Simulated scan of single mutants.
Amino acid sequence: MQASTFLWFDGHAEEAADHYTSLVAGSAVLDRQRDADGRVTTVTFELAGQRYIAYNGGPQFTFTGAISLYLGCDTQQEVDTAWAALTEGGKEGPGGSLTDRFGVTWQVVPKALAELLAKADPPAAERILQAVHAMTKIDIQGLIEARDR
């Protein structure tokens, strides 16, 4: 048995899968299924080992922020690159969240956030979290400065 994330699109499954796999190292489109007219219906892809299925199901269902994809970034450069690519045509949100041009919500979070919180005393942790909530794209240096205040 295998669990995968199933994403319902209104005609943009292939474009979304191609966009996402271009952003995340170690990712690839695995399969494209087409209907009798040659139109792509389903795209199976992996993002860094996590399998997703993108389906062109029509307008019946839309994405909401109640579920999001989490992108843990190793560096500020990774945060910046992913943020720029995912917000293009999309919308920034608070605390590292955004909605991309396909309507999918993402959490773009540097791994440094967890590391800083794990080593912080309670007042420093509170300052770090307040800083995160005041940001759109998370800035690691800003988190360090909040911790050290």
Rank of each mutant, 00 (worst) to 15 (best):
33 Q>G: 05
10 D>G: 11
36 A>W: 00
130 Q>N: 14
1 M>H: 15
8 W>V: 12
29 V>F: 08
123 P>F: 00
125 A>S: 10
40 V>G: 04
27 S>R: 01
92 E>N: 11
106 W>M: 00
21 T>D: 02
130 Q>D: 15
129 L>E: 08
22 S>D: 09
89 G>W: 02
97 S>I: 07
120 A>Y: 03
110 P>F: 12
131 A>D: 12
104 V>A: 14
79 V>L: 14
81 T>F: 11
135 M>S: 11
89 G>V: 05
79 V>H: 09
115 E>Y: 01
59 P>W: 01
69 L>G: 02
105 T>L: 00
101 R>I: 10
126 E>W: 04
29 V>I: 11
64 T>E: 11
21 T>K: 01
1 M>F: 14
78 E>P: 10
55 Y>G: 14
147 R>D: 07
117 L>F: 15
123 P>G: 00
3 A>P: 05
69 L>C: 07
72 G>Q: 11
13 A>P: 09
140 I>F: 06
144 I>M: 06
109 V>H: 08
58 G>V: 06
64 T>C: 08
33 Q>M: 10
37 D>H: 02
143 L>W: 04
143 L>K: 00
22 S>P: 07
107 Q>I: 09
74 D>T: 07
35 D>M: 15
132 V>A: 03
120 A>W: 04
138 I>Q: 05
142 G>K: 00
6 F>N: 06
26 G>Q: 00
42 T>Y: 06
46 E>W: 01
15 E>Y: 08
68 S>D: 01
61 F>M: 13
9 F>V: 12
123 P>V: 02
93 G>W: 09
88 E>F: 01
72 G>I: 05
102 F>E: 11
3 A>G: 06
98 L>T: 02
20 Y>D: 15
141 Q>Y: 03
102 F>D: 05
117 L>I: 14
5 T>S: 07
4 S>W: 13
19 H>R: 12
